[in-house]
């Protein structure tokens, strides 16, 4: 460890040493005085003179030094990890490091609360410093899936204060099916562009949140969480009720009679209907029987000798009675 510190210190010392200032050669000075050369002429030509470089007396960096040089952004301190990623946040602005002042944090939180009350999709902002990085052991997608699978749909943003272009966006599983990744990306880019137009970090996060809140509205529509209802009240023609006509005394009397006798009248009508129906059914089911008497046979007929009427239907101009084939009773019996 000490050796590494020595190497780094030495490297910084060597790097901090300034190169020697150029000095005029006598030949060049004479040529300049003669007008043979012009100062700065080399800068206007493509030919680059080969300047012999002296080999730096600095040892080459090791692979460990190169790896360490790439990790320029310090990770979030371990003490804050639990506050960031330990549970579903209770506030919409997650800033355990107190990167924002109390007033600014309160303002951002109130805005995010207002958004939550007005929208079907919550917006959670995890706030980090611009030069910070989320530890590699933390998988942002997993955090979102674990804490935002249930409850109200949410959009989660990892925002870097002062460096909005580093921000990342994630949506809860309820929205991931309906809001595509390119759509999420476009919303983030739009919000970042709004933020970058602002001069300072506080204005940037404010613009970022406002723009993302607007874009979340369109996500709601894409997810079918809101219907196409006019945001502003629309004037509609109210149906004018026709003025009540003055009812005639007969109608009023009938109404009064109905109020007084309606219920018993209805009961009686129902009873009559039931009785009529019962009678009808009884008639349909009725069977008619005749008493049988001993009748002596006549005219040799063993079964029948009842002679009824005979009617002729030959003429369309005469009535049935006139076409009745009847014989006068000559005997008058």
């Amino acid at each position: 460890m000490k050796a590494l510190a020595w190497v780094l210190t030495a490297g910084l010392v060597v790097g901090a040493a300034e190169p020697p200032m150029p000095a005029w050669l006598d030949e060049d000075r004479k040529s300049l005085e003669k007008g043979e050369i012009l100062p700065g002429l080399e800068l206007l030509t493509e030919e680059v003179p080969e300047v012999p470089q002296e080999a730096a007396d600095v040892p080459a960096p090791t692979s460990e030094e190169i790896a360490a040089a790439e990790n320029v952004s310090p990770e979030v301190d371990e003490q804050y990890l639990n506050a960031y990623f330990g549970a579903r946040p209770e506030t919409f602005l997650v800033d355990p490091q107190k990167l924002l002042g109390s007033k600014d944090a309160r303002d951002r939180e109130s805005f995010l609360k207002y958004h939550s009350g007005d929208s079907q999709v919550d917006l959670f902002v995890y706030l980090f410093d611009g030069h910070q990085a989320i530890p590699s052991g933390v998988r942002e997608e997993e955090v979102v899936e674990r804490f935002f699978s249930e409850g109200k749909p949410a959009v989660v943003v990892y925002y870097y204060l002062g460096a909005p272009q580093k921000s990342d966006i994630y949506v809860s599983p309820l929205l991931s099916d309906t809001v595509s990744a390119p759509e999420q990306r476009r919303a983030l880019i739009s919000s970042v562009e709004e933020a970058l137009e602002k001069p300072d970090a506080l204005a940037q996060i404010e613009a970022f949140c406002v723009q993302l809140s607007i874009r979340i509205y369109w996500m709601e529509r894409a997810a079918g969480l809101v219907k196409d209802e006019p945001a502003t009240p629309v004037a509609r023609r109210v149906k004018e009720e026709a003025p009540a006509k003055a009812e005639s005394p007969a109608v009023l009397q009938a109404k009064a009679w109905g109020q007084r006798y309606g219920v018993p009248g209805g009961i009686m009508a129902s009873a009559l209907l039931i009785a009529a129906g019962g009678i009808s059914i009884a008639r349909h089911r009725a069977r008619f029987r005749f008493p049988s008497f001993d009748v002596p046979p006549r005219l040799g007929g063993s079964h029948a000798a009842g002679i009824g009427a005979v009617i002729s239907f030959g003429s369309t101009t005469q009535s049935p009675s006139s076409q009745r084939n009847d014989m006068p009773n000559y005997l008058g019996l």
Binding site: F293, V295, A304, G306, I307, G308, V310, I311
Partner: peptide
């Protein structure tokens, strides 16, 4: 003959 008649049995005589 374009005529019709009705005849009945003894049960219906009365």
């Amino acid at each position: 003959t374009k005529s019709a008649s009705v005849t009945w049995g003894y049960l219906l005589d009365p």
